[in-house]
Amino acid sequence: MSKTNPGHFFEDYAVGDVITHAVPRTISGGERALYHALYPARGALYSSDEFAQTCGLLASPVDDLITFHTVFGKTVPDISLNAVANLGYAEGRWLRPVYAGDTLTSRSEVIGVKQNSNGKSGVVWVRTTGRNQRGDDVLTYVRWVMVRKRGEGEAPEAVIPTLADAVAPGDLVIPDGLSFAEYDFTLAGEPHRLGDYQVGEIIDHVDGVTVEEAEHMLATRLWQNTAKVHFDATHRPDGKRLIYGGHVISLARALSFNGLANAQMIVALNAGAHANPCFAGDTVRAWSEVLEIAETNAPGVGAIRLRLVATKGAAGALRGDDGKYLPDVLLDLDYWALMPT
């Protein structure tokens, strides 16, 4: 009997299943250093203990997307090892900062299943929660994945979950003690505060990064993401390794520093779509649209809802006349961040 793990197929999932994912991960300063080496990340709150302490935190937390990638990576062997595509995200909330020394674990609950009409694959919805060593939830999100079927056969009854279009401002979790009352705009890198942005404003982040094979594979290994399409060039008919979608998310978020340097903490993930595949050699650029602005109860802290688009094309271009994503668009991400008022 084989001792290796072939991964889960569509038939293996049932609504209500709870999966505890293997291999806890203790986060260290090494993850931060590698993250900042892989991406042009320059957020002051994530670069300096002293800056973070003036904002009321114990020290500089690790970048929010380190938390996301680590929690996500734990789920891959159980959720998306046999995935055709990662289709989307919803209802994501960062619940508390993660610091060097914290140990993260992941578990997922299956909340929806639906077989595709071709009978060869189906969509699985899961709600994943990441926890620290004290049992505190640090992150929760929903994602849905198209997964191959093992073979022909009857399909389970379709269950499609009802998901919120966006996390409401009142449901955003502000880290304990966070205050931007003494925020240093000079050290942060830009003078723009929440009141300087207008709903509907488009920000071209100008810079671009060309994706390299070695970098994206290093990043994917860093997060212990075992999805075959990211490593095995024989797994796709075109012989290409697919760039992990999270790599594109981090590139775009880091590029958005130019114009959004004071969008310091991601606190919610409202929606997301990997619109088109990304491959080594592609040059990724980014632009953002301001979708909403809200107040919080924390001193000097406001919330800004942003659409972040990673593209190989022009800023502001998203969909064609047919309503479909343009072929140059790689990522369409809707998220909330905290910003000084």
Score class of each variant (00 low, 15 high):
residue 1 M to P: 13
residue 2 S to L: 12
residue 4 T to Q: 02
residue 12 D to R: 00
residue 13 Y to M: 06
residue 15 V to N: 01
residue 20 T to M: 13
residue 20 T to K: 14
residue 24 P to I: 12
residue 26 T to F: 06
residue 27 I to Y: 05
residue 27 I to V: 15
residue 29 G to A: 13
residue 30 G to K: 01
residue 32 R to W: 10
residue 34 L to Q: 07
residue 36 H to G: 05
residue 37 A to T: 10
residue 38 L to Y: 11
residue 41 A to W: 00
residue 41 A to K: 03
residue 43 G to Q: 13
residue 43 G to P: 02
residue 45 L to M: 13
residue 51 F to K: 07
residue 52 A to Y: 03
residue 54 T to I: 07
residue 55 C to G: 03
residue 56 G to Y: 13
residue 64 D to A: 14
residue 66 I to H: 04
residue 67 T to R: 04
residue 68 F to H: 12
residue 75 T to A: 08
residue 76 V to H: 04
residue 78 D to S: 14
residue 81 L to Y: 13
residue 84 V to L: 11
residue 84 V to S: 01
residue 94 W to H: 14
residue 98 V to R: 02
residue 100 A to S: 15
residue 103 T to R: 08
residue 103 T to N: 07
residue 110 V to P: 14
residue 114 K to D: 04
residue 118 N to F: 09
residue 123 V to N: 05
residue 131 R to Y: 15
residue 131 R to G: 06
residue 132 N to E: 05
residue 137 D to A: 15
residue 139 L to K: 08
residue 144 W to G: 01
residue 148 R to H: 10
residue 149 K to S: 14
residue 153 G to Q: 09
residue 157 E to M: 13
residue 159 V to F: 11
residue 167 V to M: 09
residue 170 G to S: 11
residue 171 D to N: 12
residue 172 L to D: 01
residue 180 F to E: 07
residue 180 F to P: 03
residue 182 E to R: 15
residue 185 F to Q: 04
residue 186 T to E: 15
residue 192 H to V: 12
residue 193 R to C: 14
residue 197 Y to Q: 10
residue 197 Y to D: 05
residue 202 I to C: 08
residue 206 V to Y: 04
residue 207 D to F: 08
residue 207 D to C: 04
residue 207 D to N: 04
residue 209 V to M: 06
residue 210 T to G: 01
residue 218 L to P: 03
residue 222 L to Y: 06
residue 225 N to I: 02
residue 227 A to W: 10
residue 227 A to Q: 11
residue 231 F to L: 07
residue 232 D to L: 00
residue 234 T to N: 07
residue 236 R to C: 02
residue 238 D to V: 00
residue 239 G to D: 02
residue 240 K to H: 03
residue 242 L to N: 01
residue 246 G to D: 07
residue 255 L to E: 02
residue 257 F to Q: 09
residue 257 F to R: 10
residue 260 L to P: 01
residue 266 I to N: 05
residue 267 V to C: 12
residue 271 A to W: 12
residue 272 G to I: 08
residue 277 P to I: 11
residue 284 V to C: 00
residue 293 I to H: 02
residue 294 A to D: 04
residue 295 E to Y: 08
residue 298 A to I: 08
residue 298 A to S: 09
residue 298 A to G: 03
residue 298 A to D: 05
residue 300 G to C: 02
residue 302 G to R: 13
residue 308 L to N: 12
residue 319 R to N: 09
residue 322 D to Y: 10
residue 323 G to T: 08
residue 324 K to E: 15
residue 330 L to F: 02
residue 333 L to D: 06
residue 333 L to R: 07
residue 333 L to Y: 13
residue 340 P to R: 09
